[in-house]
Amino acid sequence: MREAIAQRLSATGNASALELRGVSRYFGALSAIEDVTLTVGAGERRAVLGSNGAGKTTLFNCITGDHPPTSGTIRLFGEDITDFPPHERIRRGLRRTYQISLLFGGLAVIDNIYLACRGVARARYSMVRPRRDDAVMQAAFDLAHAVHLDDVEQTPVSELSHGQQRQLEIALALAGAPRLILFDEPAAGLSPTERRDLITILRTLPDHIGYIVIEHDMDVALQVSDQVTLMHNGRIFREGSPDEIESDPMVQEIYLGTGPDHG
């Protein structure tokens, strides 16, 4: 396992995928995250843990530009993207999924995936209908297959089960050539079987694709990450390998809750 990680990190070079320096985000007088400094290497897989309100999703919103940071700088693969609109960040290889699925309910599954593939390709304004053998359309079908949604390709998204919607949510983030993906609680509401599928999908992603995953389920989080960041009250509280985090007594006391009253 360790060797595999080392191999992957060296294969992708030393440039860091993401660099946050002193990033804060205020909503009025309320600070959601404060002075977060974080570096994620290319191809690195990191879990972000923390209780509700720790600022995990706000951190994601700052990185993608949904809610730009109030102060601080963000670099993506060396480029300062702090003032970029979200679509410019996405076109540079950043992707994200949402905690509550944000899909196009009126459109079919394949149309959703097609839009995701089209968004990071050219000809977004094309007035010519794609043919079935169109390269982007083909990529969409491949992606539908990869996340096991080929049976429901033509089904409107509003008719999918919760698990299928979560799978589609992941498919949208895999479109094009992602380099760094932010997964916001991908396992939320999934059945044990679906969780296993999710872990397989995450662990079999190509080596050059790094990700940050917010996850409440410790089992899932520790299985899919090389590094763990623990957030508390909008600040980074601990960083380390899954083993270090698991065995850190402070972490156990505050977050994992191994005290007598937690069974």
């Binding site: 679509h87 076109r91 009126g106 977004r124």
Partner: peptide, 14 residues
């Protein structure tokens, strides 16, 4: 129309 925020996050200039 359905979801401008997601379209931004897919690389579209809304």
């Amino acid at each position: 129309r359905d979801n401008p925020r997601r379209m931004e996050a897919l690389g579209f200039n809304v």
